[in-house]
Design a protein around this nucleic acid. Structure first.
Lengths: 173, 173
DNA sequence: TTTAAATTTCAGTCATTACTGAAATCACGG
DNA sequence: CCGTGATTTCAGTAATGACTGAAATTTAAA
């Protein structure tokens, strides 16, 4: 499948951003391709379009599926898997945020809890330091709880809140 | 400087998270150390505490300063630089979010704008695809603007909003 | 059950990034 | 402006992570 210049540019940029986003270049490029593609693509088509090894595509698609960003479909009379990406950009962001929270925040909260417990019978560590750890743990837990609450809201509500911007602050005084 | 077991544990965890956060292990460890340290430290103390090369500390501290997470102080009659980290966890998060926005979102908005402009005189790319790019650009711009608004609010207001949780939605109907 | 297409696994290679240590530079006191 | 201590630069090396391609496995039609 030949890609148009505009599409290529997007895919390449996505790939360049990959490092900063904590995924490999291939994963990002494949996601960009599937996100833009009008119809689902087979793994072979993806490999050819992006000039990467077929096996690389396989692994990358697995990762995109663990992020819940890509799913598999089939066409009648064709044994091959067809892959498609979530097209709703809002959902895409939500999936990425969920993933980041799970991978970046949750393990840290876990570790900090253990550190707190451990520090109970630890008489070397200065109180000040223990307190700093405690504060940080509280903060992360509060943030985490807040995120879950917002995630639980219906999307139009969140959008409305966002669109009100600073006005919300005035309304609630 | 000898580190207590609890402190060590925190620093090591921070280091392990580093990859996912898009910084090097050293940068993360140094940040953790300075964040927990009761008083500012010299580069040499840091290098020794963490067993990393002095030059590595130098480079890492530079990076932490570009993130506005670490600053330099001095003590009278001592030519050495003393480094301290922001202790306010809220501020720390804000700095990290600012940095991520600047490095991850802003360049993407920029590129998408260019793609849009380019796609005007591009007759190969299907309308559907162009539209998808446009939608994503709009979304990122809206998100970006919203973030700036919230960043501009006084901290107590944001905290109040967060603590209200889902109640906000009910208040504004 | 056989066969062939489709997919995945994995060991090895390649590329990238992080880190070290020596040498160069800077900054200040004398 | 010389000398000493502090800091930075940078070339080389080490460590890490990504990618390839061949072999193994799975899947389903015949």
């Amino acid at each position: 499948m030949k890609l148009t210049a505009t599409v290529q540019r997007c895919i390449l940029h996505w790939g360049e951003m990959a490092g900063r986003w904590g995924v490999s270049r291939s994963v990002a490029q494949i996601h960009a391709l599937l996100f833009l593609a009008p119809q689902p693509l087979t793994a072979d088509e993806i490999a050819e379009s992006l000039s990467v090894a077929r096996s690389n595509v396989s692994v990358s698609l697995k990762e995109l599926q663990t992020w819940d960003l890509v799913s598999v479909t089939h066409v009648l009379g064709d044994r091959r898997d067809y892959f498609q990406a979530r097209k709703d950009i809002w959902e895409v962001l939500a999936m990425i945020m969920d993933g980041r929270k799970k991978r970046e925040i949750d393990p840290t909260v876990q570790t900090l809890r253990e550190c707190m417990a451990e520090s109970k019978r630890d008489h070397e560590t200065p109180e000040e330091v223990k307190e700093r750890i405690a504060t940080m743990l509280e903060f992360l837990e509060e943030l985490s709880g807040w995120y879950d609450q917002v995630r639980g809201m219906p999307r139009p509500t969140v959008l409305k809140l966002m669109r009100m911007g600073t006005k919300v602050a005035k309304v609630i005084g």
